[in-house]
C-alpha cells in the first residue's frame, strides 16, 4: 500500500533537506526526487519543480526525506493516473522558478482529464495550477444553461439524488435486515 510505504519512509530520521533555490546557481548541484502514479512509471523531478506542490515540499522539508531515500522509495501516488501525473510533473518543470503567467493554454480541454487533473492537483496542493484548472473548469460552462451544465459536469438532479439516496437507504436497510436474520439463525 502506497500510504504505508510513505509512512515508513517519512518516519526515517534524516537531516532536514533544505529546498534549493528555484533558479539554481550552476555551482550548486540540484536535488532530484522521484514520484510514481497508478501506472508505477517513475518520474524524476527536481526539488525546485516540486516546490510547487505544498504536499511534497512539506514532506521533503518537514520529514527530512533525503535524495537517496527518495531514489530508493519514490513518492507513491497510487490514486493519480500515470498520464495525469505526467501532466503535473511537466507543468512543475515548465514553471520551475518562473513567475506563473495569468493564463495557461496548455491545460487539457477534455472534461474527464481536467477533472482528474483538478483532483490530483488539489491532492498535491499545487495552488497556481489549481487556479488555472479551476478557471478552465469554469470556462467549460460559460454561456450554458442549467441543463447543459448538468450534462457537461455530470451532475444529477435533486430528484435523481433523492432517488439514489432512497435506493441506498433501502439497500442498506435490506442488508441490515439480512445480517440480523443471519445472526438470529446462527444463534439458534
Amino acid at each position: 500500500m502506497s500510504s504505508t510505504e510513505q509512512g515508513t519512509s517519512s518516519a526515517a530520521p534524516a537531516e532536514p533537506t533544505t529546498a534549493p533555490e528555484s533558479a539554481a546557481a550552476p555551482e550548486v548541484p540540484e536535488s532530484f526526487y522521484y514520484v510514481h502514479g497508478k501506472d508505477k512509471v517513475v518520474h524524476k523531478v527536481s526539488a525546485g519543480a516540486l516546490q510547487h506542490s505544498a504536499l511534497i515540499h512539506g514532506m521533503i522539508s518537514n520529514l527530512g526525506y533525503t535524495e537517496e531515500q527518495a531514489k530508493a522509495n519514490p513518492f507513491p501516488f497510487e490514486n493519480i493516473d500515470g498520464d495525469i501525473l505526467q501532466m503535473v510533473v511537466d507543468w512543475c518543470n515548465q514553471h520551475k522558478g518562473k513567475p506563473t503567467p495569468p493564463e495557461d493554454t496548455n491545460l487539457p480541454k477534455q472534461k474527464e482529464k481536467l477533472f482528474d487533473l483538478v483532483l490530483a492537483v488539489n491532492y498535491l496542493e499545487i495552488k497556481e495550477l489549481l487556479t488555472y484548472c479551476c478557471k478552465q473548469v469554469a470556462m467549460m460552462v460559460k454561456g450554458k444553461s442549467p441543463e447543459e451544465i448538468r450534462e457537461i459536469w455530470m451532475i444529477p438532479t435533486d430528484a435523481e439524488d433523492e432517488a439514489a439516496e432512497k435506493e441506498a437507504k433501502k439497500r442498506a436497510g435490506k442488508e441490515a435486515a439480512g445480517e440480523t436474520a443471519a445472526a438470529a439463525g446462527d444463534a439458534k
Binding site: 477533472f115 483538478v118 483532483l119 488539489n122 479551476c134 473548469v137 469554469a138 460552462v141
Partner: peptide, 20 residues
Amino acid sequence: MASWNQLSVETKQEVIQYLD
C-alpha cells in the same frame, strides 16, 4: 470517470469564483 461531484467543496468554491 471524474466529475464535478467528486470535487471538494473548497475546490467547487474556487471554480464558482471564476464564473460570470
